Simulated assay, not measured.
Amino acid sequence: MITLTLRAVRTDAKPAAPMPAPTRLPANSLYLRLLTWSFTLFNSVRVFAYLPTIWAIQQHGASDQHSLLTWITFAGANASMALWLFEQNGRRIHRAVIVNVGNALMCTAIVLVIASHRLGH
């Protein structure tokens, strides 16, 4: 059997203080400019960082050293992030979208190389 207990709620209590608004930095702040450029730099370099993995699998055929599920997940995460950024920014393509598309394409290339080696053997 279930018993419900009702409690009286005081209506004369003071309301909680409102949460302070988040602090926003000016769009032209040095911090935001550095953050934007470091994002662009490191994520652009990351596009090229996939090349040694592709080359190693092609050269040595050791596709069993790489998880197909992991690379499919990375490709999907980068592709969905690119689409999310595109939608969140008024359906505009900007550097973050382009960088995520590039990373998704490189992860997809690794998936294809791994799959081709596994199907070929």
Results as ranks from 00 to 15, higher is better:
I2V: 11
T3I: 08
T3W: 06
T5F: 15
V9H: 05
V9T: 12
T11H: 06
D12Y: 04
K14G: 05
K14W: 15
P15G: 01
P15A: 01
P15N: 02
A16C: 12
A16I: 09
A16K: 06
M19W: 09
M19H: 11
M19E: 07
P22T: 06
P22S: 03
R24A: 11
L25A: 13
A27Q: 14
S29N: 13
L32Y: 09
R33E: 14
R33K: 08
L35C: 12
T36I: 01
W37A: 06
W37P: 02
F39H: 08
F39W: 09
T40R: 03
T40D: 00
L41I: 15
L41T: 15
L41K: 06
S44M: 00
S44H: 01
V47N: 02
F48S: 12
F48I: 15
Y50F: 14
L51F: 14
W55M: 13
I57T: 13
Q59E: 05
G61T: 03
A62Q: 09
S63T: 11
D64P: 01
D64I: 00
H66A: 15
L68Q: 10
L69K: 08
I72S: 14
T73W: 04
G76Q: 02
G76V: 04
N78E: 07
M81L: 08
A82Y: 02
L83H: 12
Q88F: 15
N89L: 07
G90L: 05
R92W: 07
R92K: 09
H94R: 07
V97P: 03
I98M: 13
I98R: 02
N100R: 02
V101D: 00
V101I: 02
G102C: 03
N103I: 06
L105E: 05
C107D: 14
C107T: 12
A109H: 05
I110H: 10
L112Y: 08
V113K: 01
V113A: 03
A115K: 06
S116V: 08
H117G: 01
R118T: 00
R118G: 00
R118S: 00
R118V: 01
L119F: 11
G120A: 10
